[in-house]
């Protein structure tokens, strides 16, 4: 018995497939979704979505969004999402430093700019945290790979 899971970010489909369980960071805390779950509509926090299929786990960072649970399908509409294995550590780190530098210089007068910066910082932090916590073998520096 499996449940269909689709993770879609604003610019692409990040994951689509049948899985055994989905654990997602709902507004009221972590939620584990098994097949035949009752319908739920929830907002998502910044966090990690876990998917298990035949004992194999896959992890995705999601930067907020909405999840819709139906008995046979979980649809995750994330503002941004990516597979933890795909995260480019060097880029995320660079983005974090840049955001921190700008925020350290003082709060941008423009509210939109400030919110965008803050969101970028939170996103980079989330990615880096997810990598250091979940990626096998701890933090890898992506530039030394391939």
């Amino acid at each position: 018995m499996t449940i269909r899971c689709e993770i879609v970010s604003q610019d692409r489909t990040v994951f689509a497939g049948d899985v055994d369980i989905v654990v997602l960071p709902g507004a009221g805390g972590e939620m584990g979704i098994l097949p035949k779950h009752a319908p739920v509509l929830t907002t998502l926090k910044y966090g990690v979505v876990k998917i298990r299929k035949n004992g194999k786990e896959e992890l995705f960072t999601v930067a907020g969004g909405v999840a819709e649970v139906q008995p046979d399908i979980v649809t995750i509409l994330a503002d941004a999402a990516e597979n933890v294995d795909e995260i480019d550590v060097a880029r995320a780190e660079a983005a974090r430093t840049r955001a921190e530098e700008i925020l350290a210089k003082g709060v941008p007068a423009d509210t939109d700019a400030y919110l965008a910066m803050e969101a970028a910082l939170r996103k980079s932090n989330l990615r880096l945290e997810a990598v250091s916590r979940y990626r096998k073998g701890g933090t890898r520096v992506s530039t030394s790979e391939h």
Partner: peptide, 17 residues
Amino acid sequence: AAAYDYEPDQSIILDEI
């Protein structure tokens, strides 16, 4: 009927989405 459970709250989430 199979109505949704809403988290955190029906009006908050519907207002947002």
